[in-house]
Design a protein around this nucleic acid. Structure first.
Length: 113
DNA sequence: AAGCTGACAGCAG
DNA sequence: CCTGCTGCCAGCT
């Protein structure tokens, strides 16, 4: 919050994602006001493993609910394991009921910004 | 200081 | 319908 960096904002939003829920890079980017910078969100996730507190990056997927960044977790199945551990069903790197599990920060969160 | 990178997203062919 | 290319912006080398 006190962080002014764009990355820190991304991390902050991701940390607000409830367990068992997922969101998309584009949703976060749009929420931050930089809809076109959805790539930056994903890139920030790449650095999420080196920051503290750890960011639940496994709850962030692309717009179709595909675990595109699973390889960034060290082990390809680690991301899926974590998601399933939270009650999320994943099949072939694709989150099932993604639409229902989708957590939109712009609606679930009433941030004045 | 300048250029490259990147876990996306959307439009075009 | 599916594959490919560009746009986008902040961080990193």
């Amino acid at each position: 919050m006190e962080n002014d960096s764009f990355y820190d904002r991304v991390y902050w939003v991701v940390r607000q994602i409830p367990a068992g829920r997922v969101t998309s890079y584009g949703a976060i980017a749009e929420f931050l006001g930089t809809k076109g910078s959805s790539r930056m969100v994903g890139y920030a996730m790449g650095n999420s493993f080196k920051i503290f507190p750890p960011v639940p990056a496994h709850r962030v997927v692309n717009r179709i609910g595909l675990l595109t960044g699973k390889h960034r977790f060290g082990s390809p199945n680690l991301m899926q394991e974590m998601l399933e551990s939270e009650g999320i069903t994943v099949d072939d790197d694709q989150i099932k009921n993604f639409k229902e599990l989708f957590w939109n920060p712009a609606e679930e969160l009433d941030l004045p910004l």
